[in-house]
Every structure is written in C-alpha cells, then in structure tokens.
C-alpha cells in the first residue's frame, strides 16, 4: 500500500499520538445567548457548534406532533470553510441528511422525550473545522448543548470513532487516518450504563477484531465522559461563583 504509515513501529500515529490516546478536548457552554442551549466543542482540530432550542411547541405542521413524547429534530451542516477545499454545502446534500438522521436516532434514545409530549426539541449542529470524527464531535457537542439547555437526559451521550490499523485499534481517528480507507467504527455510548446509542462501521472489519475495537471505543467514550462532565462541573462552578 502506498501512502503514509498510520502507526509507526515505535507506536506513534501520524499526529504523534499513541494508539489509545484521544485528541485534546476543548469545550465552551452557552456560547450563543439567544439560544436555549449551545456549546462549542473542539476535538483536536475538529470543531463543532451545537445549538439547542426547545422544548417548544411543534413548529410548522402540527401533524408531526407525537402524543406521548417530544419530537427530536436534528440538523447537521458543514461550514463552507470547514474543509481544505472550500465547498458550498446546501442543506439538502445526502451526507448531511444521513448525518442528521443518525443524530436524531442517537438523541431520541438519550433524551427523556416522554417528559415533553406534543412538543419539539431542535438540535442544530454545524461543523466549523473538519478533521475527522465529524459525527462524534457533533454528538459530543450536541450533548453539551443539551446539558446547557437543561433538557433532561438519561446520561451524557459520548461518541468516539475507532480505526483499525496493523491489528491495533486507533482511538479517535483524525482525517488522515480516516482518509486511508481502513475500517472506522463510530460508537455513541451512554457511559454509565454502557448502553450503545448508536454504532456504525465503515469498510470491513474481521469479526475476530470486533470485540477489541468495541472495547477500545468503550474506554475512549468513558474517558470522554470524564472530561465532559468535568467541563460541565467547572462551568457550573464558575457560573455559581460569579453570582
């Protein structure tokens, strides 16, 4: 195979991480004043802005309303400047639609929707910088925005992608690793109960390696959970100290 070596003999990945290391996580809550909840989350060089509004009345056609729970409406988009190649991405493109669907599925399981019958919760996520693991960053950002909005959740939803190179699972793959075309598994986990909210796998992975990859993903998600919950606590402490 021509191309870069994703895992060197010394155990370094292209960006200098070890196989089980996550990228640096930065997150700010409440970045937009006019929204009910918002969060700006950056994982390495992938940055996403999530905005949550709701729960509120159903907008548009009332027929969409569900009598026993809230409707979760997700919209995913990528900024034109988010990738190396500048590209206009109208909302209708297939990838975005798919990603929106995935996000909706993920959060329908996590949000306690039955508390808000006949209402709607909107989650808008935009990728500002894309460097691999877009879905996972979106999920994490959306979780933080939901927390900021005060919408009751079963648990944090932490997502992490795991690649597989040279018999080794690589946690939190960056763009270079994603682009190499190996298997990439994206897992969204409710870390405390270890329930899987979402799981997707691109390209083929031998069954023998599945458990190893899943394990690496679980550990990574729990690590992320620790970071995210600490950030939430710190933000709350700052907020209460300021008052």
């Amino acid at each position: 195979m021509a191309g870069v070596e994703l895992l060197s003999d010394q155990g370094y990945r292209v960006d200098g991480r070890r196989a089980s290391e996550l990228r640096r996580v930065q997150c700010r809550l409440g970045v937009l004043g006019q929204a009910d909840g918002s969060a700006l989350l950056q994982l390495g060089n992938t940055r996403a802005l999530a905005v949550v509004s709701g729960p509120h009345e159903i907008r548009g056609s009332k027929s969409k309303a569900l009598h026993d729970r809230a409707v979760v409406n997700c919209q995913y988009s990528m900024a034109t400047f988010s990738t190396a190649e500048r590209k206009r991405r109208p909302h209708g493109d297939r990838k975005s639609i798919e990603m929106s669907l995935h996000l909706r599925q993920t959060f329908e399981t996590a949000i306690l929707t039955q508390l808000f019958p006949r209402s709607q919760i909107d989650i808008f996520v935009q990728i500002l910088k894309s460097d691999g693991g877009n879905y996972c960053v979106c999920v994490n950002a959306a979780t933080m925005a939901l927390v900021d909005a005060g919408i009751p959740l079963q648990d944090y939803v932490c997502a992490c992608s795991v690649g597989f190179v040279d018999e080794t699972p690589l946690v939190d793959v960056c763009y270079a690793e994603e682009a190499a075309g190996g298997p990439v598994m994206a897992v969204a986990l409710l870390p405390r109960s270890e329930q899987v909210a979402f799981l997707s796998l691109d390209s083929r992975l031998h069954e023998d390696h599945l458990s190893g990859v899943m394990k690496a993903a679980t550990v990574a998600c729990r690590d992320l959970h620790a970071v995210l919950s600490r950030i939430v606590k710190e933000t709350l402490q700052e907020a209460t100290a300021g008052e």
Partner: peptide
Amino acid sequence: RDNHASSFRVRQSPTISDTVQRIDQLNFSF
C-alpha cells in the same frame, strides 16, 4: 480563497500544542 483552509490542514497533524495540552487534559497513557 483556499489559503486559509489549506494552511490549517498542513498544521493540523503534529501540532505541538495538542501534544502538550493533551497531557493536562487527558493524561491516560502519555
């Protein structure tokens, strides 16, 4: 127009700031 975007693509792989702050934030296996 691509200048901005491509410059950060180049820089994004082995950014040293990432390495360092990673130690602060997630000191798992450094």
